[in-house]
Simulated assay, not measured.
Amino acid sequence: MISGSVDFFQDDRSDILTSNRAVPSYYGATPPTFNVGKVKSRGFEIDLRFNKKINNNLTLWSNINYTHARNKVTYADVAGLLPLYAKPIDKQIGQAYSYVSAGYYNTWDQLYGSTMHNANDQLKIPGNYHLVDYNADGVIDANDNIPYGYSGAPENTYNATIGFEWKGFSAFAQFYGVNNVTRQVVFGTFSGKNTVAYDEGSYWSKDNTNPDGPMPRWETTPAGFYTADRYFYDASYLRLKNAEIAYTFRQDWVKKAGISSIRVFLNGNNLYVWTKMPDDREANYQSAGGQGWASQGAYPTVKRYNLGANFIF
């Protein structure tokens, strides 16, 4: 009635090919890729199966699976004088990085008393994010871009399928979920003097100092990091991945037609999702620049419905 398995794994890799080298720009040339990286991976998987025949007509079954996998960079060719938080060491592959906000500039006094930006500081206005000076050096710059959330690959995945068979009827539903994952979805409202505005919830105003997001900018160019962590999301989700209901005909009229059985079914894929993400996506595609985080390009998860029949002769 009940069966299952538990698997543990570890994967220690070395001599990983990398193009990120600790060579200063004034060296005057791009160094070649080099087998120098080291990564340690650990995890486990639990699989449980249940199958119970209640009587001659009713059977219940389910499959439950949980996987935990976490990796950590143990060595990389990075500059020795960088602070630890700026190095990939002891972090996941693809760790997200972001500037972090501590609320908004709600008044000019708060703005004038804030930490200066190293670029376009004069373009700050109330309604923008008040960025955290993480290294406390008195200026917001690249050194305040810090590890944020998780990587784009989920640490934990869950899968549960439950079903039954009863007097020719059968049905099942599969739920799939992940957590400990971070994604970036950038909405370019008014970016590049574009008139497109996305539905991002409420914006800052003098009468709404606790909004969903800062005041949009138009025809001004603040520092590129002024959006802080606004477009980073907890990408955990629970999805109704598959569901089906079916009935199998084995009556005499079927056999008289020269058919052993007819199975009629209605099923669907990606029927519903519960998530904090602004849209339904399972991944970010890579784009140029930055930390390798893609802000655009992920195609929405497709929802499908199928109605059909299987004839067995």
Rank of each mutant, 00 (worst) to 15 (best):
A96K: 11
L131K: 03
K206E: 13
G113N: 15
R263N: 09
K52C: 09
G152S: 11
Y285K: 12
K167Q: 12
N269A: 12
G268C: 09
K193I: 06
L111R: 05
F34M: 09
A102N: 14
E219K: 13
N180R: 14
Y105L: 01
V178G: 08
P147Y: 06
T74V: 06
Y105C: 07
G213Y: 05
I245H: 00
Y26W: 10
T189Y: 00
F44Y: 15
G127E: 04
K255Y: 00
G149K: 04
G152T: 10
K72I: 04
P32D: 14
G201M: 10
A160G: 14
T115Y: 05
A22M: 11
A86N: 09
F9A: 03
K241Y: 05
F175L: 09
G163L: 06
S62G: 15
N194Y: 01
S3C: 08
G177W: 02
F225W: 11
N242M: 04
D109K: 11
F9I: 05
I64P: 00
D90Y: 13
T195S: 10
V78S: 11
K193S: 13
N208R: 06
T301E: 13
N106P: 07
G138Q: 04
I259L: 03
D207N: 12
E155M: 00
T74L: 07
F187T: 10
F44G: 15
D280W: 15
T221N: 12
Q251C: 04
P154C: 04
I140E: 03
E200Y: 02
I140P: 08
Y285V: 12
I54F: 10
N20T: 11
R217G: 06
Y226N: 10
W108E: 13
Y26M: 12
D137Y: 05
G28P: 07
W204K: 05
A243N: 02
N106F: 07
Y129K: 04
P154M: 02
W61H: 07
I312M: 03
Q251D: 08
N179C: 01
S101N: 12
D279I: 11
A96S: 14
P32G: 12
N135S: 01
D121K: 09
G4R: 10
I46D: 06
N56I: 00
V23A: 14
Y237R: 08
T18R: 13
T195D: 02
